[in-house]
Amino acid sequence: MGASAETLTGKPAPGGKGQVRTFFRRLRNGDEIAHIFTLVFALTILLLACLLVYELYAHSAVSRHKFGWSFLLSRSWDPVLERFGALPFIYGTIVTSVIALLIAVPLGVGGAIFLAEFAPTKMSDGLTFIVELLAAVPSVIFGLLGIFIIIPIMRESVDPFLQSHFGWLPLFQGPVYGVGFLTAGVVLSIMIVPFILSISREVLLAVPAEQREAALALGATRWESTWQAVVPYARVGILGSIFLALARALGETMAVTMVIGGTPSISSSLFAPGYSIASVIADQFTEATGQAYLQSLIELGLALFVLTIILNGLARLLILATTKRGTAH
């Protein structure tokens, strides 16, 4: 290091002094400063995450000691008797997120394929801009949209249609309220489509033209080259967009609270009102009386955190598994 300082500065830098001088020269160049600053920023983010988990953990002590692991499996939520269980909320969170993905993935990926592969450039850019605007709309607005537009449509058209045609499935039985798992899932799907569409489109546009042309050169049609060469090449990025959307769906609070019905129940019917973890915390935190009640809500927050980590971990495993094989399907 000393030698390089010497040759670069053109001055002799003998012995140990050279090392110090090297450090200060690098300091002057900004390398060391950049190194230290970025390290501090990175550590700060890590520290914040740890602090968050610690706070959730520490402030749920009463609840954890009182209910133990049965908290996760109990279905009762009774503030009067102070008996709390997380299962209805975990169920509601997962069910609404799954419904949202079932609707948003085909819409988002299909739309992205159209915009990236088939639409004229100007139309693609314009539409993408509008779709990306959707991502910037506050979630309470989506909640209002849910209350004034989607709930009436669900209650009067969609739910009765599903009931009369697919009523033999337990999913579509029971009374129709308008609010409930299905409606919450539909509202969520509208909120997460922009993420899937926008990111998937970028990923598809980044696929090298040679991939498409390789398929075309072998006699593939336009659609075959898109579906068999371009989409598989982009699959990791598309999966990534879906997982980002899932994370968003799991944690979405306001809009879900407004349309899910606010009933801690587990029902096979998607028409039934329910609750999600995020929405019950938002709904009941201000009125929670007593340590057990309050700390149960905090423990729910911890459960949501863990649920998100588990699902993200599974997502990474899925990506790893499909990437290692290197095969498209």
């Binding site: 040679e210 049609t221 498209a328």
Partner: peptide
């Protein structure tokens, strides 16, 4: 499609599909 089957092409950079 028939033309491209008769006239094959190899590209500048190797571009295998992400398959086996």
């Amino acid at each position: 499609v028939a033309l491209r089957r008769r006239v094959g092409m190899v590209f500048q950079r190797p571009n295998p599909f992400p398959k086996t």
